[in-house]
Design a protein around this nucleic acid. Structure first.
Lengths: 219, 219
DNA sequence: CTTTAAATTTAGGTAAACCTAAAAAAATGT
DNA sequence: ACATTTTTTTAGGTTTACCTAAATTTAAAG
């Protein structure tokens, strides 16, 4: 079956929210998509009609197996294009999200197959997120939230969940990228901010809001 | 200014028709876009309002300077993507048109700049058509129509104007591609078909309809 | 020079994807 | 338990890009 750009964006956003909350609600999806709750309800009906969604009025909704599969092909396209933009065209990793957001809707199956080969079947995108294979399978990296790493622990940055330009600009400023080694020096109970050492060199302070969006794995 | 996918497709089609006819008419544009005359009229008003079009009711229309410039940036994007698909992803030259048709609407200026550099600033697309530069400039190759080449003349294929899969399949079958040497053996007055020798080897017959869509330059 | 035919535009309507405002259901506080 | 707040849905409207059918303009033919 074939989906409109709007439908694909809804599917992708529902998928993303499901990583955090088992069942998604109308308002959070509206916020995610920069639209209004009433518009979301309209689209939910449509996606339910197309049998991609488990949806009970007033009770929330989630993608079913079919919906999940489609979400994963969109995620796959998005992350392959991001990888292309960074490794082949030389974009900075914080500039690719918006462009990949457009490219991901070009739906030729052969295009994505060939792009994948051309890029030598990359496993993760420039933000460290895994790229699903043709069947939607991927090995999730067991990631820990930087906001929960205790003092004196050393870790390596694996991915960043909030990919806004503002967020990534801040990370760039502090020389933090995928693969960077971090060590938590001090944790401030007052506001949840943490002091960290970056690559065994400079130290910096990250707000709780920032550290919650950084995922890491053990050194 | 920013244009919808529909607007861009109209602009591109008007540009293409203008290569053949100075002033474009509603019906031929409707046919080109696989839509109805009434829909075309709707869009003409819109494009005129946006000051991209010289349009006189019932009298035909053409792109003005602003419209032309936009057409050329779309053509540039389309041809760069076609070049990418063939040289980097290994697509056959007759399979890329539809995909480039989607990719061309991704509008990031930086994307196209970087793609152009990545491809080493190609001058022509896989069909032999010149790729306009950032300013819309390109050097048109002086091309002759194969349908008008006299008997016993040898020429080289420079481009193909009808890029339908069917047309290109036929050319592939006869081993004709950009750069192929052709010699007109005989011209049949009855139906305008011609007998040609391909690469000094096999001979084949091309209908007038086909030969009219092949452009060549002197050997 | 009028009649007919062809091309084009207008009028009015549809579907997709949005919106605001009001109604309905669910959650919350006392 | 019931009133209030929050969340969600419904009702009805807008815009874009289509459509058909009818009216208008231009071109062609006798």
């Amino acid at each position: 079956m074939n989906f409109s750009v709007s439908e694909e964006n809804y599917i992708k956003s529902i998928y993303r929210l499901q990583q955090q909350q088992e069942v998604v609600n109308t308002n959070s999806l509206a916020q995610e998509l920069n639209t209004r709750a009433a518009s979301v309800t309209d689209m939910l009906k449509k996606l339910q009609l197309k049998k991609l969604l488990d949806y009970e009025k007033y009770r929330g909704f989630k993608l079913n197996a079919a919906g999940n599969k489609i979400a994963l092909t969109i995620v796959r396209r998005h992350r392959l294009w991001e990888y292309f933009l960074v490794t082949k065209l030389g974009f900075e990793w914080d500039k690719v999200h918006a462009i990949a957001e457009e490219l991901e809707h070009v739906s030729s199956i052969e295009l994505i197959q060939r792009l994948d080969s051309f890029l030598d079947h990359p496993q993760t995108d420039p933000h460290g997120d895994p790229i699903p294979d043709v069947h939607g399978k991927f090995t999730p990296i067991k990631q820990l939230n930087l906001g929960e790493i205790p003092e004196k622990k050393s870790v390596i940055v694996s991915s960043v969940s909030n990919q806004s330009s503002e967020m990534l600009e801040l990370l760039n400023h502090n020389n933090i990228k995928i693969g960077t080694g971090l060590r938590v020096i001090k944790r401030f109970a007052f506001d949840g901010s943490i002091e960290i050492k970056v690559n065994k060199q400079a130290t910096c302070i990250l707000s709780e809001q920032v550290s919650k969006n950084i995922f890491v794995y053990h050194d």
